[in-house]
C-alpha cells in the first residue's frame, strides 16, 4: 500500500507553549484513522499542520509525496470544527464555491449527499441548526475526491439521530482509495469504522496501532483503552 501521509519529527510551539513534540508517523492509502487525545493534546494543531493552515516549528509533513503547501491543498479535504461557509451563502452557493475552486469536487456526489443529509439547497447557511451545519460541512468535505480527508470532530455537539446520519454518510460516501483522519471524543459511536488509532498526549505521540490488534492483543475496545490511557487527564 502506498503512503499518503508522512509526518516526520514534527515540533510545533506557540511562543513558550509546546503544542506538538517529536511527532512522527505514516498513514497508508485506504485507511480510516482515529486521531485521539484529551483536550489540548494537539489533535487540531496536527490537523491544521497537515492542511497547511499553520507551519511546523521544525520537522516535515508530506502528503502524497509533496511537502505541505499550495499543491497539497488540492488533494487534502479538511473539515475543521468551525464553519467553512460564509453568512451570505445559501446551501447551493456553498456547493458552487467548492465546485469553482476544487477540481476534484464531484457535483453529482454533492447532490446525492445533500438529499441523503436532508439539506435544502435554498436554505441560507446562517439559518441552519448546528446539526444541519455539520451535515453540510461533511457534505462539502466528502464531495471532493481527495487523497486525504481530515475531519475534526465531525459528530461533536449533534444529537444521536444526526450523529447516526453523519456516520452513515461517512461510510457510504468516502472514497476507499483515500484515507481519513478523524478526531472525536465519542468513541463508542464511531470506533467501528476505524482501521487504526493514533493517540496523542500532551503533544506527544504515544500510540499508533491497528484497531484489530488493540482488540485481540489487549482484549479491549478503543473506548476502554482511551479511558485507561487518559484516566488522569
Amino acid at each position: 500500500m502506498s503512503v499518503v501521509l508522512e509526518v516526520k519529527d514534527i515540533h510545533k510551539s506557540y511562543w513558550r507553549k509546546t503544542a506538538l513534540s517529536d511527532v512522527s508517523f505514516t498513514i497508508e492509502r485506504g485507511k480510516v484513522i482515529g486521531l485521539l487525545g484529551s483536550n489540548g493534546s494537539g489533535k487540531t494543531t496536527l490537523m491544521k499542520l497537515i492542511a497547511g493552515l499553520t507551519h511546523p516549528t521544525s520537522g516535515s509533513i508530506k502528503v502524497g509525496g509533496a511537502t505541505v503547501g499550495h499543491d497539497t491543498k488540492r488533494i487534502v479535504s479538511y473539515m475543521p470544527d468551525i464553519p467553512l461557509t460564509e453568512g451570505w451563502m445559501k446551501v447551493k452557493d456553498a456547493v458552487s464555491f467548492y465546485r469553482d475552486f476544487y477540481a476534484d469536487f464531484d457535483h453529482a456526489k454533492a447532490h446525492e449527499m445533500i438529499s441523503f443529509m436532508r439539506l435544502n439547497e435554498q436554505d441560507r447557511v446562517s439559518s441552519l441548526s448546528k446539526g444541519m451545519q455539520e451535515r453540510l460541512q461533511l457534505t462539502l468535505a466528502l464531495s471532493r475526491n481527495a487523497s486525504l480527508y481530515l475531519l475534526d470532530e465531525p459528530i461533536g455537539g449533534v444529537d444521536p439521530v444526526a450523529r447516526g446520519k453523519i456516520l452513515d454518510a461517512l461510510v457510504e460516501y468516502y472514497n476507499p482509495e483515500s484515507s481519513i483522519i478523524l478526531t472525536t471524543h465519542l468513541l463508542t459511536d464511531i470506533e467501528r469504522i476505524f482501521d487504526e488509532v493514533i493517540m496523542l498526549k500532551q503533544g506527544k505521540l504515544i500510540l499508533q496501532e491497528d484497531v484489530e490488534t488493540i482488540r485481540m492483543k489487549r482484549g479491549k475496545s478503543v473506548d476502554e483503552l482511551f479511558k485507561e490511557v487518559y484516566a488522569e487527564c
Binding site: 499550495h70 491543498k73 479538511y78 468551525i82 467553512l84 461557509t85 475552486f101
Partner: peptide, 15 residues
C-alpha cells in the same frame, strides 16, 4: 481581512 482569517479561504488551492 476575510481572506486572511477565514479557514475556507486559507484552504483554497490558490497562490
Amino acid at each position: 481581512k476575510h481572506q486572511l482569517s477565514s479557514y475556507h479561504r486559507r484552504l483554497l488551492p490558490l497562490s
